Amino acid sequence: MTSWWFLLLTAVVVAIVVVAIAWIMTTATRLDRLHIRYEKAWQALDAALARRAVVARSIAAVFVQADERTESAPATASPYGKANQLAILSARAERADRDQREDAENALSAALSQVRPEWLTPQLAAELADAEARVLIARRFHNDAVGDIVTLRSRRPVRWLRLAGTAPNPRHFEIAERELSPQFDSAAPRASARVVLLDDSNRVLLMRGTDPQGSGEFFWFTVGGGVEPGETLRDAALREVREETGHQLAPDDLLGPLWKRTEVFTFNGSVMRSEEEFFVARTPAFTLSADGLTDLENTVVHDYKWCTPPDMESFVRAGEKVYPEDLPRLVDEAVAVADGAAVTATPRRIF
């Protein structure tokens, strides 16, 4: 009898130890993943803030050029008196250490809030609206990641066992979240389906185009377009592939959507706010047919190419933008999904 109780007690103790070890390992792994998520969120926020500073410098340069063309420029009623301030604050924000970054970015936000839309060209106004939107979204993702880490690290077992090690607690990034530029709010959201078409060599099909009313600069973009009334996102993706390439995909060929993003831009003289979601599909390389393109699309699309990430990076070095900007770094993820990796239930936001 004593032996039976001893065995039972031993089994209970072993079970408790096993459960405790499993919990410790699971929690430590979760903490590690949360910290990785936090670091990626900070990198995205840092990139969004850097882009806003670049746009602010561009605005300052436009103001200076306007000032040079104007003999008298009253600072209180025009942008001219704000040029130096924007240039100084954008440079200060870019150079600020992490501890001083919030103050520097808040000062730049205050200066940008004084910029009136009518002072800017539609293109520059759209770039500012897009930069502000990216900062807003990236900051929220960053602070969500910080909140999840702080919540988990505040639990008593995590503190007692020091599962977080000696790493300092991450901090929320608090800057004034002002209203977005009127160009962003006034542009009606346009749901769009885009497709990352991969061939058997893991190259992505990209179109090369220009804005009919733009500066003539070339840019590269994935196949896709707006969702028409009565269509689902998947229906729109299949239709856009067929119309823009002449290639027919089956519904099951589309995997995802994998990513989503919001992009504000000017196109053909109008400011647009595109709410995009990206599917992935694998197909043998094929030659495109332009038979399904509209007249407007024929003026936009000049070329196409099956591209590797180094190809995309070479386009950027040559001054031709690639949309989405993160695409060279996202190809590996798209390839993994095309090769059978699981797709998350909710599309991940990209920039």
Score class of each variant (00 low, 15 high):
Asp32Met: 09
Arg140Ser: 10
Ala193Ile: 00
Glu102Thr: 03
Arg171Pro: 04
Ser90Met: 01
Val115Trp: 07
Ala104Lys: 06
Ala56Pro: 01
Glu244Arg: 04
Ser3Leu: 15
Lys305Thr: 09
Gln85Phe: 00
Lys40Ile: 08
Ala133Thr: 10
Thr283Asp: 12
Arg30Cys: 06
Phe286Pro: 07
Ala129Ile: 01
Ala338Gln: 04
Thr166Ile: 09
Arg69Phe: 07
Asp144Arg: 12
Ala338Met: 05
Leu86Val: 02
Arg178Thr: 08
Val241Leu: 07
Glu333Val: 08
Gln248Asp: 15
Phe279Leu: 05
Val14Tyr: 14
Asn298Met: 11
Ala44Trp: 00
Ala345Gly: 12
Leu89Ile: 01
Arg140His: 13
Cys307His: 03
Asp144Ser: 14
Gln183Leu: 10
Glu297Tyr: 07
Ser201Val: 07
Asp97Tyr: 06
Thr29Trp: 11
Gln85Val: 04
Trp4Thr: 10
Glu263Lys: 11
Asp185Gln: 15
Thr245Cys: 08
Val301Ser: 07
Val335Asn: 07
Ile24Trp: 05
Ala318Cys: 10
Leu330His: 07
Val227Arg: 00
Ala41Tyr: 00
Gln114Asn: 13
Val227Thr: 00
Glu263Val: 08
Ala290Pro: 08
Arg234Tyr: 01
Pro168Asp: 14
Arg155Ser: 13
Val227Leu: 05
Leu31Gln: 05
Val322Asn: 04
Pro284Ala: 13
Val300Ile: 10
Thr346Tyr: 08
Arg140Lys: 14
Pro79Asn: 12
Thr27Asp: 12
Arg234Glu: 11
Leu49His: 00
Ala250Val: 03
Ala285Gln: 13
Glu325Ser: 13
Ala47Cys: 10
Thr151Tyr: 12
Leu180Lys: 04
Ala93His: 05
Thr232Met: 11
Leu112His: 01
Arg239Thr: 04
Arg178Cys: 04
Ala125Trp: 03
Leu254Arg: 02
Ala75Thr: 11
Met312Ser: 01
Glu228Leu: 13
Gly269Asn: 12
Ala44Phe: 06
Trp5Asp: 12
Ala334Glu: 03
Ile350Glu: 02
Val13Ala: 15
Pro229Ile: 08
Val62His: 12
Glu277Asp: 13
Ile59Gln: 01
Leu198Tyr: 02
Leu255Gly: 05
Val335Glu: 05
Val135Leu: 05
Val227Ser: 06
Glu179Tyr: 13
Lys40Leu: 11
Arg156Cys: 08
Arg208Ala: 08
Val227Phe: 01
Ala176Glu: 15
Asn298Trp: 04
Glu118Gly: 09
Ala60Gln: 00
Gln213Glu: 15
Gln123Ile: 04
Arg242Leu: 10
Asp199Glu: 11
Ala93Ile: 00
Asp253Met: 07
Ala342Ile: 06
Asp211His: 06
Met312Ile: 02
Val322Arg: 01
Trp23Met: 13
